[in-house]
Amino acid sequence: MEVTPRKAEAEQSPARPDRKSAWRDLFTFRAAAQPRQELWLGVGAFLLVLVVWSIVAESGLVQPQILPSPRAVVAAWLRLFTEAGYLGDIAISVARVWAAFLASAVIAIPLGILMSGYRFVTAVTEPIIDFVRYLPVPALVPLTLIWLGIGEGSKVTLLWIGTFFQLILLIADDARRVPKEFIETGRTLGASDGALMKDVLLRAMLPNMVDSLRITLGWCWTYLIVAEIVASSSGIGYELWTARRYGKTPEVFAGILTIGIIGLFCDQAIRMLHRRWFRYLQ
C-alpha cells in the first residue's frame, strides 16, 4: 500500500529525488507531488498542535475546566470505555449514520439518474428538493419528534432528510457530466434506455458517485450529533452532552476526538477503495 493519504493522484516521483529539491518543490507553484515529504509535514503539523496543547494545558496557563491536558483526555477516554459502555454508544451512532446513509443512497441513486435523463422527473422533483435542501436540519427536529417520538425512527429520519436532498442533486449532477458521446455511442450500438442507464451511465459516473457518497457520509455525521444531543439516551452525541452537563470537560474533548477519528477513518477507507476500484482512471 502506498503511503499517500490525501493525494490519490500523486504523481510518480523520480527514482531517487534530490532531497533539497523535493522540499523546494513544496513551495513551487503547481510542482510535482512529493508524497513522502507531504506525509511528514502532515504528521508534523498534527504533533505540533498536540505539543502546543500540552504545554498550554500542563503549565496551568489555562484552567483545566476550560482546556484539559491531553493526558486528562486520554484518561477520560479510557473511563468512557470501561465505565460508561462507550463501545455501545459508538456502535449505535455508527448504526444510525449508516442506516440513514444507505436509505438515502438507495433512493437517491436511481432517482438522481432518472432526474438527469428525463425532464419530467426533474420538473416535478426539483422545486421540492431545492425547498427542503435549504431547511436547516435542526429546524426539523421538533417535527420529527412530534411525528415519530424519541425512538430510533426520528433520528434516522432526521439524518435521512439531511442527506437525501443533498445527495440526489449531487448524483444527478454526476450523471449529467457523463460525456454525450458515451450516451450516443450506447444508443447507436442498440442500447435501450434502461440498458443505457445501467451499462453506460452508471458505469461512467461511478467514480464521481463514490466521491459524492463519501462527502454525504460526512454530512450525515454532522446531523447525527445534532439528533443525539436533542433527543437521545445513547450514542456519541448523547455522551458528549451528558459530559457537558456534569462539567466533565475531558470527556467532552474525548467525544469530539472520537467523532473526528471515526470520520477520518471512514473517509480514508473510502478513498482507498476508490483507488482500488477505479485503477483504470490512472
Partner: peptide, 11 residues
C-alpha cells in the same frame, strides 16, 4: 457512429 472525441469506455 464513430465520433471525433474519444468515445471508448475507460472502465
Amino acid at each position: 457512429m464513430v465520433f471525433q472525441s474519444y468515445s471508448s469506455f475507460p472502465w
